[in-house]
């Protein structure tokens, strides 16, 4: 036992050892080969992800020049993969703006035009009819969502029901932003909570944290026909999202940061939606806030939404 250790496989060993070594080596090689074969589906993925994409920095660290490059790359990818010419812009918050949304629950009849408009505007996956908005049909006399139903399909409004559309509330104290381990989602100066789809790692902790079911995960690569793609895009909002990342409503920042109204508001046939800059004392949303009694969804959670509901008196 006290021989000098001749740790293998120094070649001088007995036939037993060399056989053992050979077998072990063969097994290891076989194991590695099997592992390579097992994970071979990943090769397709590595072809799809370019080095620039892999190494891309966080949005907030990109210089103007970097952004140009990234946007050009994304536009080219959309052209190649979806066959559509799109323009991706970098819409930044307008100084002195804080967006607030309100819905008149006395007017909303649950027809779902906003849901559809969101779907088209934001280039959602056509397979699932994805949308950032869900509408609950609720019995009059309660605010208990447990009594609500989102899958109704009869003529609306139904007798004894009211309709509660829910989308991202752009909270001032956003649990989703706190949850994100990589700062892929954050709140901007105009109150919009955005996601850098090229930074998100897809852990879905934000989805668990959000009390309003506002976040969506791209369970697969979205499918949108070329002629249906909305070419008017923004990096932080409606550009076609990659597979495996989380996305959310941005109050259509590619429209609203250019002064326009959100798509869901324009689509509403009942005029139940009110949108504007709460910091402007003469804005319609400010008048509403000062003159109507508003309610906040799940106010007890302290999320401080920038989204209100109100009823006509």
């Amino acid at each position: 036992m006290n021989e000098t250790p001749s740790f293998p496989p120094q070649g001088s060993g007995s036939p037993v050892l060399s056989r053992r070594t050979a077998v072990k080596g063969a097994c290891a090689t076989l194991g590695l080969a099997a592992f390579g074969a097992a994970i071979s589906p990943l090769t397709k993925l590595t072809e799809d992800i370019s080095a620039e994409e892999f190494l891309q920095q966080h949005y907030q660290e990109l210089s103007a020049k970097d952004k140009q490059k990234v946007f050009a790359r994304l536009e080219a990818e959309t052209k190649e993969e979806y066959g559509a010419e799109v323009t991706i812009r970098d819409d930044r918050p307008i100084p002195g703006t804080k967006f607030v949304y309100a819905i008149n629950l006395s007017l909303c009849n649950g027809n779902g035009k906003c849901v559809e408009a969101c779907h088209r505007e934001n280039n959602h996956n056509r397979q699932t009819n994805e949308s950032y908005i869900r509408i609950l049909e609720m019995p009059i006399g309660t605010m208990d969502m447990g009594k609500g139903n989102i899958t109704y399909s009869h003529a609306v409004p139904a007798e004894g029901k009211f309709y509660l559309p829910v989308q991202c509330q752009q909270c001032d104290n956003p649990p989703c932003v706190h949850a994100c381990p990589v700062q892929a989602t954050w709140k901007e100066d105009d109150g919009i909570v955005v996601v850098d789809y090229n930074w998100c790692i897809g852990c879905r902790y934000c989805e668990a944290a959000c009390p309003y079911h506002a976040r969506r995960f791209n369970w697969q690569k979205p499918e949108v026909p070329a002629d249906e793609i909305n070419p008017d895009q923004s990096y932080l909002s409606n550009r076609i999202r990659p597979q495996g990342v989380v996305e959310k409503c941005t109050y259509c920042l590619h429209r609203t940061r250019r002064g326009r109204l959100p798509a869901c508001l324009e689509a509403c046939p009942t005029g139940a939606r009110v949108f504007g800059n709460i910091l402007d004392p003469e804005s319609e949303i400010r008048w509403l806030f000062e003159n109507k009694r508003v309610l906040i969804l799940k106010e007890h959670l302290g999320t401080e939404p920038s989204f209100f509901y109100f009823f006509d008196e």
Binding site: N109, G110, N111, V115, T128, N129, E130, S153, A155, T270
Partner: peptide, 13 residues
């Protein structure tokens, strides 16, 4: 306001 039929429904996968 006339009644409407909600024609567009998102699917939860």
């Amino acid at each position: 306001f006339p009644k409407m039929i909600p024609t567009f429904k998102p699917k939860e996968r």
